[in-house]
């Protein structure tokens, strides 16, 4: 398979990256889902990650959060501790029936200050109210979360992100199953983060949305297809390449030796059988 690390050529044009991937490979059961990806996320900028299902987009976010260990290569966070990164996963893991009030759910965003045992300060409560207002949920603080619609719940999670006050914000398909009004409101919140100089990385599927709101795009199909300004990335040729990603599961795939250099007798520098990374 022909493969070019296009982004490495683009790399010089990027501003200093808040978070850098260097030759990152992530695997499930030794099969790579993110394969030899390198590049930087532009700091203070909105970057969309797009690509077909199974392209490794969510997996990449998990690795950036430190929730998954790279099989090979590195995620360089440049002094950002995982807790200084805000992460909104797809909703699956949240128990929406849990008897929690909206305000308490938002106040979880204050975890860095309150932690397991600390008290919730008055200013945190005020920030929670302000955050609820900013996502269009003013006055909902006392309601239980199990009475919210999917759209309202996502607004609450965005309010929690606001409270987290993170420099880097990772969003995994934040607009799936939301109506146009809610999506527009939440996109406005994201635009606000950009004005505040925060870095946002979002996994998205809607190309039009990406073109009109996200200046930077990483097109991922296990390999990095293209990474840079959205207009240069979302070209028909690139999209065709991304959608041509092999979907079948090859049980007998050989060990990857792409990083091997020099004589074939040297021990492999990158061997998925060794989980010592």
């Amino acid at each position: 398979m022909s493969h070019h690390h296009d982004h490495q050529h683009d790399h010089a044009h990027h501003p200093a990256g808040a978070i850098r991937l260097s030759n990152l490979t992530l695997t499930y059961h030794r099969h790579p889902v993110v394969h030899h990806v390198s590049g930087s996320f532009a700091q203070g900028e909105l970057t969309a990650i797009v690509g077909p299902n199974g392209a490794g987009k969510s997996t990449l976010l998990k690795a950036m959060m430190g929730l998954m260990k790279p099989n090979h290569g590195r995620v360089e966070r440049h002094g950002l501790a995982p807790r200084e990164i805000a992460y909104l996963p797809q909703q699956a893991a949240i128990d929406r029936d849990f008897p929690l009030s909206v305000q308490d759910a938002v106040l979880l965003g204050d975890w860095r200050n309150s932690g397991w045992f600390g008290r919730i300060s008055r200013s945190a409560r005020q920030r929670a109210d302000a955050a609820l207002e900013r996502v269009g949920m003013a006055g909902f603080g006392g309601r239980p979360v199990d009475e919210l619609s999917a759209g309202q719940f996502q607004r609450v999670l965005f309010a929690r992100l606001l409270l987290q006050d993170a420099q880097l914000i990772l969003l995994d398909e934040p607009f799936t199953a939301l109506d146009a009004k809610t999506t527009a409101d939440l996109l406005a919140v994201i635009a606000g983060w950009r004005r505040e100089g925060r870095t946002v990385v979002a996994v998205l599927h809607d190309y039009e949305q990406v073109r009109s709101h996200f200046p930077q795009t990483l097109l991922l199909a296990k390999e990095c297809i293209a990474w840079g300004p959205t207009t240069e990335v979302l070209t028909p040729a690139n999209l065709a390449r991304a959608n041509g990603m092999p979907q079948n599961w090859d049980d007998d795939a050989p060990v990857c030796h792409r990083d091997d250099t020099g004589a074939p007798t040297t021990p492999p520098a990158h061997d998925h059988t060794l989980h010592s990374h």
Binding site: L67, R83, A93, F98, G115, W116
Partner: peptide
């Protein structure tokens, strides 16, 4: 003592994990 941690662990375990809790 563990009330808040238990509540968060039950409500949104991924969040607690992502905060390094």
């Amino acid at each position: 003592l563990f009330y808040r941690a238990l509540v968060v662990e039950s409500f949104d375990p991924e969040f607690l994990q992502s905060m390094g809790g």
